[in-house]
Design a protein around this nucleic acid. Structure first.
Lengths: 113, 113
DNA sequence: TTAATACCTGAACATCTGCTCAATCGTTCC
DNA sequence: GGAACGATTGAGCAGATGTTCAGGTATTAA
């Protein structure tokens, strides 16, 4: 007997469909993963996990231009991962998300095995 | 007195540097997040979290071509997230990573708040 | 052998991404 | 006021990304 005949495609698809999440959730998840998928942004998040920093200090720390950092910070701010505070000429950024560090921690454990 | 003068840039950068991870870890993390940052790949992973599936069933489930799925499966296979098993004409794919579901779970909790 | 099925592959394509550069804004100091 | 400094912005660009398309391999069935 053909083993393939024992495989019910319809049933498999129906069952797998239950594991899928709704489109809105999928979009939110991919957005979250995408923001952490760039080295510069990930480093910014890690740096801010300790204390707030001004734009220029982040730029110097990571060895990139202020402009590049500013662009990324805008994205992080839009996604509500960071918040900012003005003080004179400087703008201090800090983490605005308690869960993002958990995510990085779980992922770190994942790659170390 | 100027408040900015109280901010020690050198010390801030030195402190933040400790929170950064080595380049290899950063690369591994961004690679992990990137693979989950595409809706098609994320859905494939979710679908395979229940049971193994052949390429055509995945394609039908997600409403995309076999080719597109095959390309993504190759990437997932390269990154050791999935494994495959041949059975006649069909190739069954299944998850090859126990931790990736934890990551999705933590991220799901994150976006729901 | 021929046809059909399941899957894979490489090239081409449009789109997206992250950076640089130049210009600009806002604040502070002289 | 003007110069200096920190930060932001928009345009432009090179590289990456995901899909389609056409063609290919491998296996099975007639």
């Amino acid at each position: 007997m053909n083993k393939n005949a024992t495989h019910n495609h319809q049933e498999t698809i129906r069952s797998a469909r239950k594991a899928l999440l709704n489109d809105e959730t999928i979009l939110g998840l991919t957005e979250t993963f995408k923001v952490l998928s760039d080295p510069t942004r990930l480093k910014i998040v890690l740096a801010l996990s300790r204390e707030e920093m001004c734009v220029l200090d982040i730029a110097r720390l990571l060895g990139v231009t202020e402009s590049a950092i500013s662009h990324q910070l805008r994205m992080l701010k839009t996604l509500r991962l960071v918040k900012h505070r003005k003080e004179g000429k400087m703008v201090f950024y800090s983490l605005d998300d308690e869960h993002i560090e958990d995510l990085i921690r779980v992922a770190t454990r994942h790659i170390s095995e």
